[in-house]
Simulated assay, not measured.
Amino acid sequence: MTSRVEASPGAVLVVTGTSTDVGKTVAVAALAAAARADGLRVAVCKPAQTGLVPGEPGDLAAVVRLAGELPCAEVVRYAEPLAPETAARRAGAPHLRIDEVCETVEHLRREADLVIVEGAGGVLVRLAPDLTLLDVAAAFDAPMLVVTDPGLGTLNHTELTVDTIRATGCEPAGLVIGAWPTDPDLATTCNVDDLPRLTGVPIVAVVPAGAGAHDPTDFQAAAPTWLRGPRLWPAASEELFTRVKETQ
């Protein structure tokens, strides 16, 4: 149920995870902070938030606390801590629609050079009965980042996630280690080499464990150093990025 969206100024980067609790929200905050440090206007979209009632601070509040004030939009919210499809069904609430997500992202793109879209759990988690984050990425021809755990078991989870992304025609832009421990064990240190070797996808950022508890000023200063190699911002934002840098 993929729909196409006409090109707009801002680029879109979609962030998924190999599972839940792998550090996806803190990774999104780090990416947002690093992009802002590069001079880009950044916005963040969370299509579906679960496990919270209206008024409670969710993932977007955590992103803003760490990365600083920036435009954010949550499309739907369900109270029970379940997959969005299940939470909506149990609540008797309308399921999320792809056009709602696209309209929200398009609105953010009008005033942003980069819109980061954070998924819920893993890449095949149902946002609605016939909707996953893969449909959102396809709608914008957006690359996907995969946030993964560095420990034992990650090779299987990460390979399955990357293979699923590729099977749908989307391009995995990179792997992000969501929480690098201060004292990594043997499996963790080996996985740093094995993850890119087995998936064919580079590790593009390594976020230290506990980063979400950092002082916001320290977090924003450190976030750019957690990125590896060339910046992740999609090619669609390169011209905008160049113009911004030329005016500085």
Rank of each mutant, 00 (worst) to 15 (best):
Q248F: 15
N156Q: 15
T2N: 13
L227Y: 05
V192E: 08
T158S: 05
G51L: 04
G121C: 11
V64R: 14
P71L: 04
W226K: 15
R197M: 08
D113P: 12
E106D: 12
A43H: 06
P234W: 02
L127H: 09
W233Y: 09
L198S: 14
A43L: 06
G121I: 11
A37Q: 15
V162R: 08
R166N: 03
D149C: 05
V53Q: 14
A173H: 07
V44Q: 01
V117S: 03
L232A: 01
A112Q: 06
V101G: 03
P234Y: 03
V12F: 09
H95Y: 07
A61G: 07
E100V: 09
M144V: 07
P84L: 05
A142Y: 03
V136R: 07
R126E: 12
L195Y: 02
L186G: 02
P196R: 01
T182I: 05
C102D: 11
C170Y: 03
V201E: 00
L232Q: 02
T50V: 15
L52S: 14
R90K: 14
G121P: 13
G210T: 10
L186D: 03
T104W: 07
G178A: 00
E246H: 11
V204N: 01
A35R: 10
S237R: 14
C190N: 13
V28N: 05
E239F: 12
G17A: 13
V125T: 14
R4A: 13
L31K: 03
G92I: 03
Q248I: 11
R109V: 09
I98H: 12
A27G: 05
R89N: 08
P57N: 08
W233D: 06
P54I: 10
E80R: 15
P172G: 02
E246V: 11
G68T: 02
A32N: 00
A87S: 10
A142Q: 05
A209Q: 14
D193Q: 15
G200W: 02
D141N: 13
V244D: 11
